[in-house]
Amino acid sequence: MPGPAPTDTDRALVVGIERYPSLGLNPLKGPVGDAGRMADWLVNSAKARVTLITSDGSPESPWTVADLRPTMQDVTDSFVGYLRESNGRPTRRLARRLYVYMAGHGFMPEPRNLAIIAADALGDQYIPNVQATSWVDWFADQLYFDEYVLFMDCCTTRTFLYNGGKPLMKKTAERQDGRGKVVMAFAAGSDVETFEGPLADGRIGGFFTDKLLRGLKGAAAHGDGVVRTSGLISYFRNSLGVVGDGAVADAGSEHAVDPMFPERAELEFARVELPKYVFRAPLADDVLLQIFDTENRLIASGQIAQGAVTLPIGLGIYRARGPDGLSKVFEIASGTTGEVNLA
Rank of each mutant, 00 (worst) to 15 (best):
P6F: 01
V15Y: 02
I17G: 07
P21N: 11
S22W: 14
L25P: 04
L28K: 00
G30K: 12
D34P: 13
G36L: 01
W41E: 01
K47T: 15
S55Y: 06
G57I: 15
P59G: 06
W63F: 09
V65H: 14
Q73E: 15
D74Q: 03
G81E: 06
Y82F: 08
T91V: 02
R97W: 03
L98W: 00
M102G: 11
A103N: 10
G104K: 11
F107I: 04
R112T: 11
L114W: 05
A115T: 06
I116T: 05
D120N: 15
L122Y: 13
V130F: 02
Q142K: 02
Y144N: 00
Y144M: 03
D146N: 04
V149P: 07
D153T: 04
F160R: 13
F160I: 10
Y162E: 13
Y162Q: 12
N163I: 15
N163L: 14
G178S: 08
G180E: 00
G180H: 01
K181T: 06
K181C: 04
V183M: 09
V183N: 07
F186L: 08
V192S: 14
F195K: 05
E196A: 14
P198R: 09
L199S: 10
D201Y: 14
L213D: 01
G218R: 11
G223D: 12
G223S: 10
G223V: 07
D224I: 08
T229N: 10
G231Y: 03
L232T: 02
L232Y: 09
G241L: 01
V248W: 03
A251M: 13
D258Y: 03
A265E: 07
F269G: 10
V272L: 09
E273L: 12
V278P: 08
A281M: 07
V287E: 07
I291C: 15
E295S: 12
R297M: 06
G307V: 04
P312C: 02
L315V: 07
Y318P: 08
G322W: 09
G325I: 12
S327A: 14
S327R: 13
V340L: 12
